[in-house]
Design a protein around this nucleic acid. Structure first.
Length: 295
DNA sequence: GGTAGACCTGGACGC
DNA sequence: GCGTCCAGGTCTACC
């Protein structure tokens, strides 16, 4: 039996703008259509069952479709997870107010940009972020696809559609397997240690979604995870809805260099300084800036 | 606190 | 086809 329902977002909202917000959409188990009007995702519910959900763009919200029948509790679970993935409850009006006075950001209001696509679990986003470090994007996609295809559970009726592996599934692997099969290289012990800490209960990443702590405290907790440095922590802060830091990677240094330093090399501190005036919205201002340099 | 070097993969390039 | 170089963040040891 098919289940279909709509979810409204805090306005303004654009489904396709969230999907286009960054490269996450290219990472399994996200599957989007070329027009970014539809997203398919194998979603693991709290009680363990994996269902295929298909999200469609509707004005100011999203239509959710699944071929499974859902009990009330499961329906609530799906709504919560979809809202989290698409940041549907976020109020960005303060950012829009600042952006309206900046020609390089005026497009964000017009296009309802500002939300950043995220995975249903913080664990999945932390693993994916570790896979983005010190490597090329193509290798990130490959490592992530290896994890999903080798260790993720397939759907019963559609076995080639696989969920992202859980911490428990990754925790029982060994470092050599993650190196040689998943091709994670030196990141293998980081992912393994993370999965084991989450699986044992020593590290409760999902609590970071709701804990009311300062951005600085949250950053300290993220930096305590092996494999998470300043760039990765800032990237995760963005995914957790804290925008006070810029995720400074080689790309950030390149675009800031071209924008304000005549192409001369810049230090991470100069990238942060370039967005200082944006205060708690620094990360978003950097993310959606209309750069002179397009790469 | 700051810095140098190691870590690992895969693509580009030269031979 | 093979060898070498390079890009990409983080960690650790050392000063």
């Amino acid at each position: 039996m098919m289940t279909t329902f709509n979810i409204s977002a805090y306005p303004p909202f654009s489904f396709s703008a969230v999907l286009r917000s960054h490269g996450w959409i290219q990472m399994l188990p996200f599957h989007a259509d070329p027009e970014y009007k539809q997203l398919t995702y194998p979603l693991r519910l709290n009680e363990g069952r994996i269902i295929k959900i298909i999200l469609h763009e509707i004005p100011d919200g999203v239509r959710v479709q699944t071929y499974e029948s859902l009990q009330d509790k499961e329906l609530d679970d799906v709504v919560k997870k979809v809202k989290w993935m698409l940041c549907m409850d976020q109020d960005l009006s303060a950012f829009y107010e600042m952006a309206s006075a900046e020609p390089k950001l005026s497009h964000v209001i017009q296009l309802a940009q500002g939300r950043i696509l995220r995975s249903p679990t913080v664990f999945e986003d932390v693993v994916k972020t570790i896979l983005t470090t010190n490597t090329l994007w193509a290798a990130t996609l490959r490592m992530n696809a290896n994890l999903v295809n080798l260790y993720g559970d397939g759907l019963i009726m559609e076995s080639d559609l696989r969920a992202f592996p859980t911490a428990s599934q990754l925790a029982c692997l060994d470092e050599d397997t993650l190196r040689s099969k998943a091709r994670l290289g030196y990141r293998a012990p980081y992912v393994l240690e993370l999965a084991q800490a989450v699986q044992s209960g020593d590290l409760d990443l999902e609590a970071l979604k709701v804990e009311h702590i300062s951005t600085e405290q949250l950053r300290k907790r993220l930096l305590a995870i092996k494999g998470i440095g300043s760039y990765a922590a800032a990237n995760l802060l963005m995914l957790l809805g804290h925008y006070g830091f810029v995720p400074v990677d080689s790309w950030a240094r390149k675009v800031v260099s071209q924008e304000w330093y005549g192409g001369n090399p810049v230090e991470p501190a100069q990238v942060e300084a370039a967005f200082q005036r944006w205060g708690p919205w620094k990360g978003l201002a950097y993310w959606f800036w209309d750069w002179n340099f397009k790469g």
